[in-house]
Write a protein that binds this DNA or RNA. Structure first.
Length: 336
DNA sequence: AACACGGGGTC
DNA sequence: GACCCAGTGTT
């Protein structure tokens, strides 16, 4: 059949390459399903290099499903602080509790049962089946999508319905009959990370270049056009007294984390922090206010601030304002 | 099908 | 600056 995907015939070369060149990542040293689940949650939309230190700290703090299930949300968010996409932390926490309640504390080996856990989508369910239990499952992350799109010369956007279907079927065709899913799926991912890179793919070093149909691999994968960036401005209060820094427990975007409260007050802008968030570009203007103008805030001593969960842009603004405060103090004129 | 959701790295 | 990343949930 013209256009059929013949990657299955290249499994041996791919796995041989992986055995020689695959990286020694912390979660590849273990196959217990809980460790796989944690690493997969952390790796969602996040680079491997950023995840490694978080993974090590997490596994030390919460070594088992039960340990995580019994933890409180504050410490869970604290360990996740700085990784972004905090709903992953809340979902992983809920997933651990669901595993205890529904499955007696054992992470299930069944795709549908996995998929039913909070925060577990098609990708993560497949990853746990393959990496923890070494059973066949399509595992399509951004690396695999890029490798397969080039391999098949797929011109359909990989984030369209048609593109996703094509990729899932190709990934399915790549699976071995019995054992070996762990290695083959790891190998395709690793090929994407090390050789079949987003820009400037190293085709001369590719173990499957003989089977690749891409004529212009650097132009693949095709993606749907992205939404335009919108500028937004918000104003927040920096509230400090002798008790320390007064923060608000967020109920919105950064639910459960501690943030600078939004304010309508005018006055001098003490600091401007700019940060991107998905399709927005936020200009955060910070003004100094006194606790008398607020209720519902909680004061933290300055020694506590480093260890509580605060989203990165807010933490950066706080650090900048503290530095400015110190500078004023040094100059000796505290007419702030 | 489109959008919200973070933060850090790369070129 | 633009683009990318071991995606998922909601609308």
């Amino acid at each position: 059949m013209p256009g059929s995907f013949a990657a299955a015939g290249r499994r041996a070369e791919l796995v041989a390459w992986y055995r020689g060149h695959g990286r020694d990542l912390p979660w590849r040293r273990r196959t217990d399903a809980y460790a796989v689940l944690v690493s997969e949650f952390m790796c969602q939309q996040t680079t491997v290099a950023a995840v490694i230190p978080y993974f090590e700290r997490w596994m030390a703090a919460f070594p088992t499903v039960r340990a995580l299930a019994e933890a409180d949300e504050e410490s869970v968010l604290g360990l996740w602080q700085g990784l972004g996409y905090y709903s992953r932390a809340r979902n992983l926490h809920r997933a651990a509790r669901a595993v205890v309640e529904r499955h007696g504390g054992e992470v299930p080996d069944d795709w549908d049962a996995l998929r039913a856990l909070p925060g577990v989508g098609e990708y993560t369910a497949g990853a746990v089946v393959a990496f923890a239990f070494d059973r066949p499952a399509p595992v399509v992350d951004a690396n695999v999508a890029r490798v397969l799109a080039r391999w098949m010369d797929l011109r359909e956007p990989v984030d369209s319905t048609a593109g996703r279907v094509a990729l899932r079927e190709a990934a399915r065709a790549l699976q071995p009959e019995g054992a070996g899913a762990r290695e083959i799926n790891s190998a395709v991912m690793e090929l994407g990370a090390l050789v079949c890179k987003p820009r400037a793919p190293l085709c001369l070093a590719c173990p499957v270049r003989g089977g690749c149909r891409a004529t212009e691999p650097e132009l693949l994968p095709v993606k749907r056009p992205r939404a335009a960036v919108t500028e937004v401005t918000e104003r927040r209060a920096f509230v400090v007294d002798t008790a320390g820094l007064h923060l608000l427990r967020s109920t919105g975007r950064w639910r459960g984390m501690w943030i600078l409260p939004e304010t309508a007050a005018g006055g001098e802008i003490a600091h401007v922090e700019r940060y991107p968030i998905t399709r927005y570009r936020v200009r955060m203007e910070v003004v100094r206010q006194s606790p008398a103008e607020w209720s519902g805030l909680r004061a933290f001593g300055w020694d506590e601030v480093p260890s509580i969960p605060i989203p990165s842009p807010h933490r950066r603004a706080i650090e900048a304002l503290v530095a400015k405060g110190r500078a004023v103090h040094r100059e000796g004129h505290d007419e702030v």
